[in-house]
Design a binder for these strands. Sequence first.
DNA 1: GAGATTTGACCCCA
DNA 2: TGGGGTCAAATCTC
Length: 361
Amino acid sequence: MESGWSWDQKSLIGELIQGLELTKRLRAELSSASAEESRRSLVQGILSSYEKALLILKWNGPMNQPQMVEATPGLPGSPISVNGSPSSDDSGRGLKDPQDPRKESKKRKTQPRWTEQVKVNSETGFDGPHEDGYSWRKYGQKDILGATYPRSYYRCTFRNTQNCWAIKQVQRSDEDPSVFEITYRGKHTCSQGSYLAQSCQSPDKQEKKENDHDHGHNHNHHQLQPSQENLFSNQTIENIEKLENKASTFCFGSSSTSVGCKDIVNGGFSHLAIDTHAALGSFTQSFISPTTPDSNYFTPSPCQRSNVGETHNVQHPEPEVHEIFSANTSATNSPILDWDFPFDSEQINPNFPFNSQGFFY
DNA sequence: GAGATTTGACCCCA
DNA sequence: TGGGGTCAAATCTC
């Protein structure tokens, strides 16, 4: 199991590293106002690298292990967990509506959930939470035993109006206060979710919200927008959108405040994905919004993340990745490329033209 | 006044 | 039994 895998792993890493290098070059190009032709070439190279990486992933099962493969068998938005049954937790206290997902558990232990670790830039402050394109309403905060910082609880604003039961928890790391661990549960079933899945535009409301709450330390994400828009030619963005549409898997951010999807087949890939976002994700920036003081959080995009039925810890042990992660945070407040990769090797059509230029272009 | 946040209390579960 | 998750009234903000 190891041997066959390691060769492909090397290839995969090689491709991703190449993508990384190209991304860095692109970044340099962008800051030096070089020829568009050169940029396009770099972008093409980047896409090509990731394309190959995907192919490698596609043909190698070992990458598609636990988290991905066990993704919910088609239960986006369902409060039913991968492992648990809806009835496993219906002993809740006097819940009003039998249809109410709350009946499943007050603690939602069986909810599909995944965790993000988000590093925020100290310069942008810790007080402004990330916006992820969704509207969240804080419904609680608890001091957690052994934790320095309280945990905040958020649920979708449209919980009542659209029966959207997505929730998230934001916990600031004790070890590194610049890191926020965000746990998501449930998928957005609200219209906002579908809207965000289609649009990379910044919702006016979000913008207003951010402006309204500008505490002086998080406004730079707006200032950065123009440059972010310039990071890619329209064609490139179009191509990536095609990619999203074709695969229904990648999502480079579905709203201005989103950072796209990750759900990479495993943690290792996530690191690279994050790095990718350092360049690619600039047009899918996530915002740090100051709506709540204790939660600078980074979120997965609205792109069907919750298909992943298991906790997905995104960690960044690799110095270089972390460095880029942080650097990008400071530059754009959108440190993570959040790929949505909700397919496993069996879900990928072997004939799917990943390896054709036409797929990307 | 509507909507969001805060916060104390309640309840479930390990 | 205590920690964690949620509720809901009070309070705040726009």
